[in-house]
Design a binder for these strands. Structure first.
Length: 417
RNA sequence: GCGGCUCUGGUGAAGUGGUUAACACGUCGGAUUGUGGCUCCGAUAUGCGUGGGUUCGAUUCCCACGAGUCGCCCCA
C-alpha cells in the first residue's frame, strides 16, 4: 500500500496540470473583474473554529472532520471548508479596519472524511468567494452572479440556479416550530432518517429523497408564511436584482444548506448530468457567523465551487483541451566529446530562452532521434564527431526533415528566427 | 457510516482448479557505415489487489481487509 495515495486523494499529474492552471487563471480573472482579492489561509485551524463556525450537529462537524492532536496537545483540524477560516482571518487581521465591504476569494484544498465516489473526494479543491461587511441584498446578487458568470463562461450548459431564503434568527425558529408541529402529525409516515430530523433539523425533511415527494410533505407550510418583514423584503430584492441581470433562477423552497451559519439567502448551482453529486456551487448569507466566532456582528455572504466537479462537467462536455507543452529543441549527440558540446549548447539555448533538452541515456543516435521525434520538439540539434571538430551543429527541422549545418554561435538565432 | 458491482502487465483486455497467463496498444532494442515519423524482427506479467482458508494443487472456489466505482447519507 506504500504505492497508493490515501483513500479519496488524487495526484494531479503533469498531463492535467495545464487544465488546473487554466481554470485557476479564469478564477483569478473573474474575481478581479468583480473586485475580489485573493486570500490564503492555513490548511489547518483550531478545531474549535469549525465547531463554532460550522455548528455542532452538522454532518461536516460530527463525522467528516480530519481532527488530530498536535505535539503541543492542541486539537487541530484540516479545514473542511474555508468560510470559517476566512472570517477568522478577517477578524484576526482586522481587515474590517479599512471600512466598507471586504471582498475576498480563495482557491485551495479542503478535507472531509467521507466515502469517496464520483465528484466526492476526501481532499478536494474549492474556489470560493466571501463578501464581508454588507447586508445589502445587492451583494447577494453580486455573489450569485459571480458564481453564475464564472460557470457560464467555462462553457457549461444545463446549469440550474436555485435560490431560497432560510430566514434569520427572528423568523426561522418560528418556521421551525411550525414544521415540527406539522410533521409531528405525520410521524408514522416519515422515513427513519426524517423521524430523527424532526427535532434536529426539520427543514431537511423537505428535501428528503424518500419523503420529499409525499403529499403531506409537499403540502407542508412554506417558509414564506413565516418570514419576518426584513427577510421577506431582502429575498424579494435579491430576486429583483437577479432578474435585472437577466439570470434565470428558480425559487426552491426545499433548498436547505447543511451548515448552521446560513441566514436569509441560500443558493445552489447544479449541473444535473453529474448525477448524485450535481451541486457544483453552493453558498449563501451568514449574517450570524462573524459574531459567533467572536467579532462584532457583521453580515457576510459567500459561496464555494467544487473544482473536481467542474472538471467532470467540463469533461462531459468535451471542454477540456489537452495542453501540450512542446519544447523547441532536442539535442542529439554521438560520442563523449559531443555530449560535452551538447551540454554547452543546451546552456546557450536556455539562456536565450529557448526550451531545450537532451537524452541522457547514452542511446544510439537513431534511438535519440526517436526520442526527439516523440518529444514533439521542432528541431533536432545533432552533434557528432564532425560537428565537434569544427564547432558546428546540424539543425534538423523535424517537421520538414530539412537540415542544415550552422556554427554553434548561430544556432540560437536561427531557431528563434 | 450503510448497500450493490468490480480488482489480471505501462494501458485496453482474453483466460483456466493442474505443463510456457492469449491478443492489441505502448515501451525498449534491432534491420551494416552518424539521423525520427511507415514497414519488418525481437524483448517486455516466476505474475493474476493484499492476507488467510479449502484442495494433492488456485490467478481461477470461500472469507477478511484494501482500493475503485455506483447509490444512500451529506455535500463542493
Amino acid at each position: 500500500m506504500l504505492t497508493n495515495a490515501p483513500r479519496g486523494t488524487k495526484d494531479i499529474l503533469p498531463e492535467q496540470i495545464g487544465n488546473w492552471i487554466a481554470i485557476e487563471n479564469k478564477i483569478r480573472k473573474t474575481c478581479a473583474t468583480y473586485g475580489y482579492e485573493e486570500i490564503r489561509t492555513p490548511i489547518f485551524e483550531h478545531t474549535e473554529l469549525f465547531h463554532r463556525g460550522i455548528g455542532e450537529g452538522t454532518d461536516v462537524v460530527d463525522k467528516e472532520m480530519y481532527t488530530f492532536t498536535d505535539r503541543g496537545g492542541r486539537s487541530i483540524t484540516l479545514r473542511p471548508e474555508n468560510t470559517a477560516s476566512v472570517v477568522r482571518a478577517y477578524l484576526q487581521n482586522k481587515l474590517y479596519a479599512a471600512g466598507g465591504l471586504v471582498k475576498l476569494f480563495y482557491i485551495g484544498s479542503m478535507f472531509r472524511y467521507d466515502r469517496p465516489q464520483a465528484g466526492r473526494l476526501r481532499e478536494f479543491h474549492q474556489f470560493g468567494v466571501e463578501a464581508l461587511g454588507e447586508e445589502n441584498p445587492a451583494v447577494d446578487a453580486e455573489i450569485i452572479l459571480l458564481a453564475w458568470d464564472f460557470l457560464k463562461n467555462l462553457g457549461l450548459d444545463e446549469l440550474r440556479l436555485k435560490i431560497n431564503t432560510v430566514g434569520c434568527p427572528n423568523c426561522r425558529p418560528v418556521y421551525r416550530q411550525k414544521l415540527i408541529h406539522y410533521f409531528g402529525e405525520y410521524l408514522d409516515e416519515l422515513c427513519g432518517d426524517c423521524k430523527n430530523r424532526i427535532e434536529k433539523n426539520p427543514l431537511r425533511i423537505l428535501d428528503c429523497k424518500i419523503d420529499g415527494g409525499k403529499e403531506f410533505v409537499e403540502d407542508a407550510p412554506k417558509i414564506e408564511t413565516c418570514l419576518c418583514d426584513d427577510c421577506r423584503e431582502h429575498f424579494s430584492r435579491v430576486q429583483e436584482f437577479l432578474r435585472a441581470a437577466n439570470v434565470d433562477f428558480e425559487v426552491d423552497s426545499r433548498l436547505v444548506r447543511g451548515l448552521d451559519y446560513y441566514t436569509k439567502t441560500a443558493f445552489e448551482i447544479q449541473y444535473p448530468p453529474l448525477g448524485a453529486q450535481s451541486a457544483v456551487a453552493g453558498g449563501g448569507r451568514y449574517d450570524g457567523l462573524i459574531k459567533e466566532i467572536g467579532g462584532t456582528p457583521t453580515p457576510g455572504i459567500g459561496f464555494a465551487v467544487g473544482l473536481e466537479r467542474i472538471f467532470i462537467a467540463l469533461e462531459k462536455q468535451n471542454l477540456l483541451k489537452p495542453v501540450e507543452n512542446k519544447i523547441d529543441a532536442f539535442v542529439v549527440t554521438a560520442g563523449a566529446m559531443a555530449e560535452v558540446c551538447g551540454l554547452k549548447l543546451l546552456t546557450i539555448l536556455r539562456r536565450e530562452n529557448i526550451s531545450a533538452v537532451m537524452d541522457f541515456a547514452k542511446r544510439s543516435l537513431k534511438a535519440q532521434m526517436k526520442q526527439a521525434a516523440k518529444s514533439g520538439a521542432k528541431f533536432a540539434l545533432i552533434i557528432g564527431e564532425e560537428e565537434v571538430e569544427n564547432s558546428t551543429v546540424t539543425v534538423k527541422n523535424l517537421e520538414t526533415s530539412a537540415q542544415e549545418k550552422f556554427p554553434v554561435r548561430e544556432v540560437a538565432a536561427y531557431i528563434k528566427k
